[in-house]
Nucleic acid binder design. Structure first.
Lengths: 207, 207
DNA sequence: GTCTATATCTGGATAGAC
DNA sequence: GTCTATCCAGATATAGAC
């Protein structure tokens, strides 16, 4: 290929480049601290050029938020589906937690941007993300309900509430997780241990 | 007292009025969506008047963030201290969770504002809140470590990490808690059940 | 598809009257 | 202690050249 053609191709930033740059910035700095100018600079173009691809900042954010949920959802489904059918509830739940934390902490800028900025964006943008969220929540509820129906999870556990607790706890790791101090998978296993078996000594002797 | 004097007193909004108004707005709308003009309006004064009491928006936010942590910290200490010394780890931990969620969900605008906006404020403001946070975290770590030393909590539980998990899960309730559907105390008990004993059936038969 | 230039708006902050 | 009036910086968004 000619140098001229290469240049032409490389000079196109496009939707992808803008979205990638924006997701990375939102993840690092939050919503309010990221301007269209800073997104443009990170993407290697000028601010005005963004409007050739997107009608507004809201449109960019909406797209990022949706992609973020779809990414965790898909990853968790894949992780759970990879578990053989005969495995215990322990193994299934553990796989789900690993998938969620892997996407959030190690892979996706989109997923972590979602968790970080969802509470900061305009109401209309949040609303546009609700349908994707409900899809992921529904999947987890069905998964956990099956385990409860099988008798693996105690019958007095409120599944919907436990799912809120679980996602809340997992997403909060974004604020302090340091990859230098351990992997997302180790972390997921710790969380699974606590949620599945509790932290108390249950050997019978408490004195 | 004369009507003139009453008027003079009532017309003073002062630091308290501004802080209360600001905390309430931050709790509801987040950091970026709250302007000094909106705070002034909620407090019943004009925007310029705020600068008689505060040097900047950062100063207001800093004060609110610190008050929010001191409020939970104090409430949890009081709740734990009210538990008789001979009680089990279950009762002690339960009291702490109740105190935390009561302050966050039912009482303090300051505490909920802190949880909501901490991740959105300028770095300098966050830094100014770290010392108060560390104080509360240290208190919880000491409390939990004692229970572990007593043998009540399993020795393989990493206390620092569990504390992060616990606070993350509790604070996340702010995003969906609806007082019409149950009290903060009920919620705290549900969370305590899960964290203390786990959600799995541990009766021995898993088939 | 990207650039430059600019219109328009909003927010934090200041000065001085009352 | 509060008000009015205003300055200034920075943000989204638009228009038209290249």
């Amino acid at each position: 290929m000619s140098a001229a053609l290469t240049n032409t191709i490389k000079s196109e930033v496009g939707r992808e480049g803008i979205l990638d740059a924006a997701a990375s910035l939102f993840r690092q700095r939050g919503y309010g601290a990221v301007s269209l100018r800073s997104i443009a600079q990170a993407a290697g173009i000028k601010a005005g050029s963004i409007y050739y691809h997107f009608a507004s900042k809201d449109e960019i954010v909406t797209e990022i938020l949706n992609a973020g949920i779809l990414a965790v959802h898909a990853e968790v489904v894949a992780a759970v589906d990879a578990v053989p059918a005969w495995e215990s509830a322990d193994v299934i739940v553990r796989a789900a937690l690993r998938g969620h934390l892997r996407t959030l902490l190690e892979h996706g800028d989109y997923t972590s941007a979602n968790v970080r900025i969802f509470g900061q964006v305009p109401l209309a943008v949040r609303d546009a993300n609700l349908s994707a969220r409900r899809g992921y929540e529904k999947y987890l509820d069905v998964l956990l309900s099956k385990l409860q129906a099988d008798g693996a999870i105690r019958s007095d556990v409120n599944i919907g509430r436990f799912r809120l607790m679980l996602i809340g706890a997992l997403n909060a790791t974004l604020e302090w997780f340091d990859p230098a101090k351990g992997s997302a998978e180790e972390l997921a296993d710790d969380y699974a241990d606590a949620f599945l078996y509790g932290i108390l000594n249950q050997t019978g002797d408490s004195s």
